[in-house]
Design a protein around this nucleic acid. Structure first.
Lengths: 206, 206
DNA sequence: CACTCTGTCAAACGACTGTTTGAAGGATAC
DNA sequence: GTATCCTTCAAACAGTCGTTTGACAGAGTG
């Protein structure tokens, strides 16, 4: 007697993702989540153990894929001798763009990710750093080779700025509203193009 | 029998600002706020009417000043014929930097502001847009004169990116951790310098 | 003196929070 | 057949939420 073809776990994850994006981790209750997922309230604690673990699983489901795509794009570019700074930025930004375009809530997930930045919750930050920090460090190494005029500290400063701008842009928090005729897909693609151009110029600045 | 020289209202606003920065608007309860402010629970509803109004007052207390400083810095630069793009960016960024360095919680407020971006709460967004949108529009006009090679849509895209980067940089969400000997003041000043240089290059990109 | 206004207080309101429980259903294994 | 496992369910748990209440103190005014 399921209202959907998806399993209970998948439906909870999808509903949680959408509601965390809209109301935040504290603002979205498990009753809201389970109602939206058409699932019994107790199912969350049965399948995930706690709300805290549910939050982590919402991240894991998407970030495993996102980081794999980023790493693949990065190592693919590394093998080419003529890879440009724009290529490396693209390897970082395009997977996030593609995820945000994914049907079944990828766009909502980018907003969840942006919220995670704003959360000073130690457990959540450690979880993200422990599980996904290594890919970011690989990007730093490649950028370091491509931008020899920047010392390590300067590079960190600038990548920090890029990461902030990316998060903000992909989460669609900006003041730029889509016009009537423009699809969400096209809007985000343009955002990624602008971001790559802007960030490349900023990184190359003396 | 006050625990502080400040009035009840001021103490509530200060405690709310700090706790909203750390736990978010939904995550920080009025009981936490009033306990931190050393004030009776009912004082919030007596002085502010509701939690929602308290949130707005937390913004109003700082943003009135921030926007006045930005506008003053902008019009001061407009009168000089040799004002550069960096000057205009500085007029936008430096007031935020100074606020974030303010003792009595300016740094916490920048984190609150960053959280507001992540909130899709319609009422809060409308409040911010209605009360502080006009200053942003003035900056757009000045940037438009300084960057004639960008059409209006392109300019909006890039300023959106700048706003996102500024928000995250000032909120101190980045991965760059202050080193032991560096004061928070010095850290934020360096962040502003990097941001101006990065954004100027990004805006000038063809 | 009485009267009003302002601010603070403990206590309570009903609604909502995350989590746990024990019963029940349905599938699979022996 | 019985037994076991996995999953779902309504109901209840203790606690917290934002808000309201009515009493009480102190200052200001007549």
């Amino acid at each position: 007697m399921n209202a959907s073809q998806f399993s209970t776990k998948q439906r909870i994850l999808g509903a949680a993702e959408a509601l965390f994006a809209r109301y935040g981790f504290a603002g979205a209750s498990l009753r809201q989540v389970t109602a939206a997922a058409n699932v019994n309230l107790a199912a969350v604690n049965y399948h995930f153990g706690s709300k805290e673990n549910l939050i982590e699983e919402v991240f894991r489901r998407r970030l495993d894929d996102l980081n794999a795509r980023r790493q693949a794009a990065l190592t693919k570019g590394e093998k080419r001798a003529d890879a440009t700074l724009e290529d490396t930025l693209d390897a970082f930004i395009r997977p996030a763009l593609e995820l945000s375009l994914d049907r079944s809530g990828g766009g909502a997930f980018m907003r969840v990710l942006a919220r995670a930045y704003a959360e000073h919750d130690d457990r959540l930050r450690r979880f993200l750093s422990d599980n996904y920090g290594h890919v970011l460090r690989e990007f730093v190494v490649v950028f370091h080779h491509m931008l020899p005029h920047l010392d390590k500290e300067e590079l960190y400063w600038r990548l920090d700025i890029v990461a902030g701008a990316l998060t903000y842009a992909m989460a669609d928090f900006g003041v730029i509203k889509r016009k009537g005729g423009v699809s969400e897909q096209h809007h985000r693609e343009r955002a990624a193009e602008h971001l790559v151009r802007f960030a490349a110029a900023g990184l190359r600045a003396p």
